[in-house]
Design a protein around this nucleic acid. Structure first.
Length: 423
RNA sequence: GGAGAUGUGGCAGAGUGGUCGAAUGCGGCAGUCUUGAAAACUGUUGUACCGCAGGGUACCGGGGGUUCGAAUCCCUCCAUCUCCGCCA
């Protein structure tokens, strides 16, 4: 959520930058500025009335004390009118505040200067590529076939127990999954991220804090009996640790990592996109989160991308880094880099990580602030990235490393799996 | 899940429905003293919004209500503690 003062002072810049997203915010912004004026003036009126009421109440108290009942009762009469008009103003004020909030929720974050203009993923810029795309033998299999052949993942069994999109990992498949989780967490630990194990369900306030609500509620599983949401990413519980917190300047940078399963309803997805591990309702992910000083957040974003690149290098997977264009940028992000691995048997790139700087967009909702050198409270910058999302990594590992003798495990993982070949 | 108790500023802890944004102590900050530090003493010390300013308004777990007036009374939700029940 953008701050109204920021909107007021930078509306021209914001509108210009919104073009990168093909988002026309002019009408909304104008309305916000108008409503904000209304808010101020009704607030002023309301404050005056309240001040008047407070004054009279004190007088009444004084008069009662002096035993002047008559006069006190006279003044009481005056307060009636004040009370009524005060209530009206209060209603009006609430209405304005609600409308204002609803409008603010409609404004996406302002893309960074370097975000390419574009409408869809076709306009993303590839800024880095690494690794050879392996040439597979005749008869190479996609990962869902490999999963069946080596009995690593049972999709049908998951359907029986829960439903589509909830696979059951078995044997070496389960072991490989656990190995990846440990490997990613250890790597993050080495890079100075403190590990946390957060709740897998969050309350409404947290879902608002990171921006899943109000507009993306259809993507989360909701437990009405307890009014809780299953987390779609560890970003939600981890970032919300810092909701309503005022940090000191030397607290920066705050670095957390956490492994969680993620739950996504993915309503409306179908076809080859959801084949095998490509898109699941429940999947594992290790997330990295940083809370950073506004001056340093972009340098930190680059460092986070480097961290994820390091993981992919160690897994010896061919990958590329994309700078997302405005149209593909998520609602809350100012700049996002996606990392994709190549799935050789499917012959396509799979997104395995998304690293974003949200600047103050989340912090404003979270009320996560710090005291600057002048003692003034300022919003922090929040960043996060997947490091990494497991299923597509698993898919690429299985497909790219398949040989006549079986599936080869990258060296870096062998200490975690305890085996170097799946056969 | 049942019964009871509690929820006040960074912490501890007062607070008969009116002069309470809130005593006091600790902590923090600034200063005096000191070669320096400690101690002592003095002052200061919550947040947000509106206003050029004087100043005003709101906030005592959250929300609602009673009242001319609520930290104080009522309702409700949440959290914590104690006891009981259940349980990995």
């Amino acid at each position: 959520m953008l701050q109204t003062t920021y909107i007021r002072e930078n509306s021209a810049l914001i509108l210009e930058r919104y073009k990168k997203r093909s988002f026309d915010g002019e009408a909304i912004i104008n309305q916000i500025l108008k409503l904000d004026d209304d808010r101020k003036s009704t607030q002023q009126k309301l404050d005056n009335q309240l001040a008047e009421g407070n004054k009279l109440a004190k007088e009444i108290g004084q008069l009662f004390k002096e035993g002047k009942q008559e006069e006190a009762n006279q003044i009481k009469e005056q307060t009636k009118a004040l009370k009524e008009s005060g209530a009206l103003l209060k209603d009006e004020q609430n209405k304005i505040a609600e409308e204002l909030k609803a409008l603010l929720y409609q404004l996406p974050n302002v893309p960074n200067e370097i975000v390419p203009t574009g409408k869809s993923e076709d306009d993303n810029e590839t800024i880095f590529e690494e690794g050879e795309i392996p040439v597979l033998n005749e008869g190479a299999l996609p990962h869902w076939e490999l999963a069946k052949k080596y009995d690593l993942i049972d999709f049908e069994l998951g359907v029986k127990v829960t439903g589509a999109g909830f696979p059951i990992y078995k044997g070496k498949g389960a072991r490989l999954q656990r190995a990846l989780i440990s490997f990613f967490l250890d790597q993050a630990g080495e890079d100075g991220y403190e590990e946390v194990i957060p709740p897998l369900m969050v309350n409404e306030a947290s879902a608002y804090g990171t921006g899943q609500l109000p507009d993306k509620e259809g993507q989360m599983y909701y437990m009405p009996a307890d009014d809780l949401y299953m987390i779609p990413t560890a970003e939600v519980p981890i970032t919300n640790i810092y909701r309503d917190v005022i940090l000191k300047e030397n607290d920066f940078p705050i670095k957390n990592t956490g492994y969680t399963p993620c739950f996504r309803r993915e309503a409306g997805s179908y076809g080859s996109d959801v084949r095998g591990l490509n898109r699941l309702h429940q999947f594992d992910k290790v997330e990295i989160v940083q809370i950073e000083h506004p001056n340093k957040s972009y340098a930190t974003l680059d460092v986070m991308v480097e961290h994820v690149k390091g993981l992919l290098n160690k897994l010896e997977l061919p990958y590329r880094v994309l700078k997302l264009c405005g149209g593909d940028l998520s609602f809350a992000s100012a700049l996002t880099f996606d990392l994709e691995v190549y799935s050789t048997a499917q012959e396509k790139w799979l997104e395995v990580s998304s690293v974003s700087n949200f600047e103050t967009f989340q912090a404003n909702r979270l009320k996560c602030r710090y005291k600057d050198e002048n003692g003034k409270t300022q919003l922090v910058h929040t960043l996060n990235g997947s490091a990494l999302a497991l299923p597509r990594i698993m898919a690429a590992l299985l497909e790219n490393n398949q040989t006549a003798e079986g599936i080869k495990i990258p060296k870096a993982l062998v200490p975690y799996t305890g085996f170097d070949t799946i056969d």
